[in-house]
């Protein structure tokens, strides 16, 4: 038997098809990353002007950058974790309701979940400043109920930053959750009831395990961008709530210290990778991969 030389059986075809993708990845991912790696070990040129650095392979840049900014690193992961947990707590019932209880309204509700994306991310974050500001309704209401002291403000606080992040990443949590809850066969829930499981047991033993791929995807889609986020901290925070993203921004653009900024970027990437790997191992969702 001779193999046909025409059509898709040519051994080169898959590579040709991959070419545009590889080209794109190389130009916009591999090349910049290599550049960043190269920058991260540079040191200032003696007597050079602002922003002039030379390669000296100084790996200590990484240690220095981390030690100097461990506070902001810790804060980034703390805020991102809080926002992820809050978003999960809000999005789960929402996704459940849309999947099982919405009936004809299902599509309308899904559009409503996505609708905030029609407005700029920045505008939505700035709107939170007004909601939590002195002229919003939240602060005066809480004050008149004596829940917060008259001098307490909600803007420029960790509360505002976490609230903004939770809100901004909520759709990223809701959609994967919905997709996986919607796939659950209602008959499995009925079967659970037939076996005398109450509502809570059914949720614990049937619904939640079946929705796990959605939970894992949603938490990853929320946690990863949240850990690197700097917009919420810049707009809603104070000097005491700055995150690692804000430090990288100021190192790059204000201090013009490219090596430290590059080293911090790499450290952030590595830290997220490690955390995510451990998480996926623990969650044990082969379905995801």
């Amino acid at each position: 038997m001779k193999m046909s030389k025409s059509g898709i059986s040519s051994p080169r075809t898959p590579y040709l098809l991959l070419l545009p993708g590889i080209g794109f990845l190389f130009t916009f991912f591999i090349w910049p990353i290599a550049n960043l790696a190269q920058t991260s070990t540079q040191t200032p040129v003696a007597g050079g002007d602002t922003g002039s650095y030379e390669q000296t392979l100084r790996w200590r840049n990484y240690i220095d950058a981390f030690v100097e900014n461990k506070e902001q690193f810790g804060r980034s992961f703390l805020y991102a974790s809080l926002a992820t947990i809050l978003a999960l707590a809000i999005a789960y019932p929402l996704a459940y309701a849309i999947a099982f209880k919405a009936g004809k309204l299902k599509n309308v509700l899904l559009v409503l979940v996505v609708a905030p994306f029609f407005t700029s991310f920045l505008l939505r974050t700035i709107a939170w400043k007004q909601i939590l500001g002195e002229q919003g309704f939240v602060v005066p209401t809480l004050r008149s109920l004596h829940i917060i002291a008259p001098s307490t403000t909600l803007t420029s606080s960790a509360f505002a930053v976490v609230a903004g992040m939770t809100y901004n990443f909520l759709p990223f949590m809701t959609l994967p959750l919905y997709a996986s809850i919607d796939r659950i066969d209602p008959r499995t829930l009925e079967a659970s009831g037939d076996l005398y499981a109450n509502g809570f047991t059914t949720f614990r033993k049937v619904t939640f395990p079946l929705s796990l791929p959605g939970v894992v995807a949603g938490t990853l889609l929320t946690f990863i961008p949240a850990a690197g986020d700097y917009v919420n901290a810049a707009i809603l925070g104070s000097p005491e709530t700055k995150m690692i993203g804000n430090v990288i921004d100021s190192r790059f653009f204000k201090i013009v210290d490219y090596p430290t900024a590059a080293a911090l970027s790499f450290t952030l990437m590595a830290a997220i990778l490690v955390l995510v790997t451990v998480y996926i191992r623990k969650a044990g969702t082969e379905e995801l991969v």
Binding site: Q72, K242, V247, S250, R251, I255, D257
Partner: peptide, 10 residues
């Protein structure tokens, strides 16, 4: 600038 930015939390 570095010292100032650090004071500002960055």
């Amino acid at each position: 600038t570095e010292a100032f930015q650090k004071a500002a939390g960055n």
